[in-house]
Design a protein around this nucleic acid. Structure first.
Lengths: 220, 220
DNA sequence: ATTCTATCCGCACTAATGTTCTAAAAGTAA
DNA sequence: TTACTTTTAGAACATTAGTGCGGATAGAAT
C-alpha cells in the first residue's frame, strides 16, 4: 500500500469528520479551509492521488462527489481484539441553568429512548447504576470539564472523601461537580482545579446525587 | 405525522436510493430527472416541505446539502456485550520540565516493554500511531488536564485548525498542549480553557509533535 | 362563480464548486 | 551541479446546482 503524505492523511481524516458531522461530503474548498491549504488546486491534486491510491472514490465534475473507499484489506495493522463492554445510557446533557438530569427509579427498565454508549468494562465496573451525561457549555470549567465532554456517573447518595461528585446545594438549588470532603458538621466542596478556592457548607445543606466515575473528552 | 404526497414519497425514495448507490446526495436536478419532474423549482418546493415535515435535513445554498433525517423508532439495536478494541501503548508520563515522550521510529515494532491499554476502536480508529501518556502534576491545567489523566495521542506533524495538539515552541524548547490555529506566517496557540488568553508565534517556531485524540480521566 | 391555497411550470439569475493553466518551490536521482 | 519528478501556489475559467419570480393549474371552501 502506498504511504500517504502528511497532508493526505489530514485530508482523509477531515473528510471522514465532515461526513460524520454533515452526512454529505465536503467541497474542495471545505477541505481547503479545514486543512489550511493555500489553493484549491492542491486539494484537487491530492484528491486525485488519494483516488489513485484507492483511498477514496471521486466523481469528476460532480460537486461533493466524494466518498470514502470502503475500508477493505487495509487498516488492520493492529488486529483489533475483543473486550467486554458495558452499554451505558446517555441520559442527556448538562448545561448551566438546566436541571441536572438524573435517572428515575424506572429509568433503568426503559432505556429504549436513550442512546447507549459502549465503555470497556474494566473502567466502568459492573455498570449498574452507571449513566453518562454530555456537557454543554463551559459552566463546569472549574471541574476541568468543558463543552462536549462526556461525564460517566454512578448513582450514589454518599461518597468518600476526595471523590468528585455531583452535589446539590439545597439552599441555592444549584448542582455542581466538586470534590467532596465531609468534615463533620460541615462539608467542604473543592473544585478539581486546585488553583481555585474551596467552599464549605453545613452538611445538611449538601446532597450527593451521583459520583463521578470518569470523564471522557473526545477531540480527534 | 404529516402524510406525504405521492410526489414527496417518490422523492424520498429516490434520495435514499441515490445515496445508497453513490454515497453522496443528489442535486435538485438529479431528483428532477429521476422523478420525472418538470421543473427544478417544484423539486425545491417539495424538498422544503419535506424539511418542514422533518423527513430530511437540508442546508440552503449548499449543493447536495441533503441528508435523510435519522429514522427514530427503528434503530433496534441489541445490547452489545463485546466491542472491538485496539491496544494502545502507554509510553510514559508527562510532567512539567520533563522531556515529552515520543514514539521512536522503531517503537512500534517493539511494544513489549510498554503497558498496553485497551480502548474502543470506535474512538481510536485504526489505531496506527496512537499512543497514550499519563499526566503527572498540574502543568497542563490550562488544557483542562490534571494529574492522573490519560491523554490519547496520535503522532502527526501537522494538524488542522482547531485541533488540540502537543506542540513544541522551538525558541523556548518547551512543549505544551494547545489548540492549534495556523494563520499563515504566524500560528496561534489557544488554551482549551477559553478563559485564558491565546498566544501567537512565528509559524516556523512551532512544531507539531502529536495530535490529541482524547482525554480519559478515571476517578472512580 | 369567486376566492383561496397548495402545487406546478419555465426560465433566468447567480452563488457554489470543480477544472485548468502557468509558474514556482521542493525534493530526488544521476 | 543539472536534470527530472512531485508538490504547492495563485488565479482565471467553466460548469454545476440552488434560488427567485411571474404565471399557470387544480381543488376546496365560500
Amino acid at each position: 500500500m502506498v504511504k500517504l503524505s502528511e497532508r493526505q492523511q489530514m485530508i482523509m481524516s477531515f473528510i471522514e469528520d465532515f461526513i460524520e458531522e454533515n452526512d454529505y461530503p465536503p467541497t474542495i474548498r471545505d477541505i481547503q479551509n479545514g486543512c489550511s491549504i493555500s489553493s484549491t488546486s492542491v486539494v484537487a491534486y491530492n484528491l486525485d492521488k488519494l483516488k489513485e491510491g484507492g483511498q477514496l472514490n471521486r466523481h469528476s465534475e460532480v460537486s461533493r462527489g466524494l466518498s470514502l473507499a470502503s475500508v477493505g484489506p487495509n487498516s488492520n495493522k493492529f488486529k483489533p481484539t475483543e473486550i467486554d463492554s458495558v452499554a451505558v445510557p446517555l441520559l442527556g446533557t448538562i448545561a448551566a441553568g438546566s436541571p441536572f438530569p438524573m435517572p428515575e427509579n424506572d429509568t433503568w427498565s426503559d432505556l429504549s429512548g436513550s442512546e447507549l454508549i459502549d465503555l470497556p468494562q474494566a473502567i466502568v465496573g459492573p455498570g449498574d447504576n452507571v449513566y453518562a451525561l454530555k456537557v454543554r457549555g463551559e459552566s463546569m470549567i472549574d471541574a476541568l470539564i468543558s463543552d462536549g465532554d462526556l461525564v460517566i456517573m454512578e448513582q450514589a447518595s454518599s461518597v468518600r472523601n476526595g471523590q468528585m461528585a455531583a452535589v446539590r446545594i439545597k439552599s441555592d438549588n444549584t448542582t455542581t461537580l466538586k470534590n467532596f470532603y465531609s468534615e463533620g458538621p460541615r462539608t467542604r466542596l473543592e473544585p478539581a482545579n486546585s488553583q481555585m478556592d474551596a467552599m464549605t457548607f453545613p452538611s445538611n445543606d449538601v446532597e450527593v446525587l451521583s459520583k463521578v466515575l470518569a470523564v471522557w473528552r473526545y477531540l480527534g
